[in-house]
Design a protein around this nucleic acid. Structure first.
Lengths: 346, 346
DNA sequence: TTGTATGCGTTATCAC
DNA sequence: GTGATAACGCATACAA
């Protein structure tokens, strides 16, 4: 248990004042080359590394940001976190990740914990649309940016998202091109802007393509494995089954694929399946899931760089950035033209 | 941009001293009920929340731990992180995750960044066996525990792992029971204790079962998709193909499954596949991968609680905890009895 | 039981 | 260019 060496120790060894040590540490321009070297030598000799906590207290900057996610074990967030962590490193920022439920209470706790730790800013990767706490903190001056999901009436709060409505429409339009008419939809809770808008996109596309909107084809609840599995299985076994499914997440698309296997349906011969998100596993040849891409990488990097620039600008309420990226339909192997002979209802 | 309220503001409003405010904040026992209430009222009235940075500086505790991983988008680490993040919350600990390469330089940077942030301790989820930096920091008194992978000759450094050698043996023994004789093995870099020991387990099991060790059946390099895919595909198309594969990670087992699909092999009828890790997707009915479980949850919780107890004990070098859990063979649907008629070499 | 004073290890504002 | 010295916002030893 060695004693910590402080800037004073360095100063003593280098025969300068502690303030000078601080100056070379911060690359203050007007320090003689000579003293710079003396200090650097002393630093190396003692193995000194500055106490970032003390630094933060004095400078009011922590070089740390917060990232609030729903469930880091979910591939979507895991991949997002990977991008953000790696990117933040480049700017010498650390990140505290909080993995919390999205209810008001847990969320409020998460954000105030981060606020207590004096993070320089927060990327919120999972808010409900109706969240109130967020505004409160935003208005207190804490730099915040929403990633992927955003809140309702967020005239001011920055966000980066993908056009979810358009994504769902693209998927449905594509399935319609493949002659599908009965298309089931698996929606997550519409308290999230993503699911809310994807659902709207689904409904609009059904209407625009002059198909019949059948409520029995729609699942809309928590995305739990069992429930979605049962729903899909029942639907496939019903007398008038859908010939295609659009899932609001790739994870759920996999569940539908499970259900298809269970009841002997072949994908895509008997049933077409489209996911949403394009998580890594979707592109695995063994899965080969057709899906709507979130542009995760662009979104994540944008969220981070925007946040950092807001931080740098000192929170002066620059015009809020609202960025909506275009989703991309990725066609792989779980979708195909509707099999006419396999269905009685034609 | 509201002004931050400090403990002084609270003190003024409550007509007490700042130290008293500090006392009620820390649940110091001897404060009159009456003054406690006064302070609490003032806190609520002002919406005060203590500055954890200042607190850390004064108390020399940050209530933050570090977690070093290889690649958080990898399911194994993502699931680990989820467990640790959620568990740490219960103890009011935050966690800074660093996603870094495992070479000496990146690792050294990661650990000294964490050290600079004055984290109370670190969970290292990805070290190479030969890492030197770790010992250095360990000896400086920083509480550290290795998770899953450990370093060589780590007489002192704490770790929690699973018996990887035994895991591989269990898998091979099981495949032998299924009459397999030519069993391929996909190993990751043996600079990691996990892969090193799994590989030893494979070799020992081959020997103990009096099978012939055939080096051409073994892949041992970086676990890159393309490479493993090609290796597996070539092997399956060779004139004397293996009838079973053991992969040192579930991710790679999926790659082998891809290769099987590509060359028209049926799993498990033509070829059996066993993974390692039991990541979430492995249990999906669509995949149904037979695998060796890491006991991730137990491992992660043990790593965290051990670390916290080391922290609490003030780093007094209590006898180092070395915990090795038993792996569990999980039999699902990618393994089956060897198909005699399908192979010429019998 | 509570207040006063000092320190934690830096940064930042003055002087010189 | 460099050195004192005062913050930064708390915890804590010492008094009272």
């Amino acid at each position: 248990m060695k004693e910590r060496v402080s800037a004073y120790d360095v100063a003593k060894l280098a025969k300068v004042s502690q303030s000078t040590v601080s100056r070379v540490l911060n690359n203050y321009p007007y320090v003689k080359k000579e003293t710079q070297e003396k200090v650097h030598n002393a630093i190396n000799a003692l193995g000194f590394s500055p106490d970032e906590i003390a630094r933060s207290l004095a400078s009011k900057k922590t070089n740390t940001i917060g990232l609030i996610v729903d469930d880091i074990s979910n591939s979507f967030y895991a991949e997002t976190a990977h991008i953000i962590l790696r990117e933040a490193q480049k700017y010498d920022y650390e990140v505290i990740i909080i993995d919390a439920e999205t209810d008001e209470e847990s969320f409020a706790k998460a954000i105030s914990t981060l606020n207590g730790k004096r993070v320089d800013g927060i990327i919120v990767a999972s808010v409900r649309m109706d969240n109130q706490k967020l505004k409160e903190f935003y208005e207190s001056g804490l730099p915040i940016i929403c990633y992927n999901r955003r809140i309702h009436h967020s005239e001011k709060i920055h966000y980066v998202e993908v056009d979810n409505r358009l994504g769902a429409k693209k998927a449905i339009n594509y399935l319609v091109e493949l002659k599908h008419e009965r298309i089931a939809y698996i929606s997550g809770p519409t308290i999230y802007s993503t699911f809310f808008e994807r659902f709207e996109g689904y409904q609009e596309a059904i209407k625009e393509n002059q198909l019949i909107y059948d409520n029995s084809l729609v699942y809309q609840a928590e995305l739990e494995y069992e429930k979605v599995f049962d729903f899909s299985l029942n639907l496939m076994r019903s007398e008038n089954p859908p010939t295609a499914f659009l899932a609001s997440t790739d994870q759920m698309a996999l569940v539908i694929m499970d259900a298809a296997v269970r009841c002997g349906r072949h994908v895509p011969y008997d049933v077409s399946i489209v996911g949403f998100d394009d998580i890594a596993i979707a592109s695995s040849p063994y899965i080969n899931l057709s899906t709507v891409s979130q542009q995760k990488k662009e979104m994540a990097i944008l969220a981070l760089t925007k946040l950092l620039s807001i931080i740098k600008s000192g929170g002066k309420t620059e015009d809020s950035s609202k960025i909506t990226l275009l989703p991309k339909l990725i066609i792989r192997r779980t979708t195909g033209i509707k099999n006419e002979w396999n269905n009685s209802n034609n």
